[in-house]
Amino acid sequence: MVSITLNNVSLTYPIFDSKTAASSPEGAGRIEKRKHGGLGLKALDQVSLSIEQGDRVGLIGRNGSGKSTLLRMIAGIYTPDEGDIRVNGQTAGLFEVGLGMRVEATGRRNIILRALMEGDSRAEAETRVQAIADFVELRDFLDLPVRTYSQGMMMRLAFALTTSFGADIALLDEWIGAGDKNFRVKAEARMQDIVDKAGIVVLASHSPDLIMKHCRHAIWLDQGAVKMSGDVETVVSAYEASDS
């Protein structure tokens, strides 16, 4: 059964670029002294949550409130300083465009590399290319280096790479901005597909509209801690009322 469970998860990033920073923006994680010296940013503070299969959850909060960190935590890229995280199901994360891609390699080559990463054999990877090519509709651009793509094209490829390998859990960070209308429809359908197959979609955004449109539940993060969670309307209206 697909699920995500976090128990009192905390994470502090080391800060190397300043020895004197003391105040962080409103709503963002706090800066604190670290045990072994230097400064740290408390990105997640005792986060506990549980997401069940078939759910679409929005993470909302101000800039720096821990949304992206939490997504990366669920994806297993970051591990907690304290606490315990359990994820049942295969995750696929879409964070920044260009992460997990070789921009100097062609789109086709990137598909093959990602397929190998997902455990495909070389032959399976080759057959995978066609299916993904049909989805991204980049035509002959697929044979050009990714660095020549427009932001929107790169987004399409990144989204396809993330969602084409049967992941149960899609972790999407502000993804929907790029991509034209046509592609948004396809992307929307694919997200629905994941949820229909008893998967989970977690979408992080500071835009209440986007969260309202795509999610059923919402989690409001503030200073790296869960401020409120529950039904999307309740959480989003509380967030909007909080004069941010």
Partner: peptide
């Protein structure tokens, strides 16, 4: 990512 579909990490 591929070797297992469940992931568990406890800070320890």
């Amino acid at each position: 990512m591929t070797d297992s579909t469940s992931y568990h990490y406890r800070a320890d």
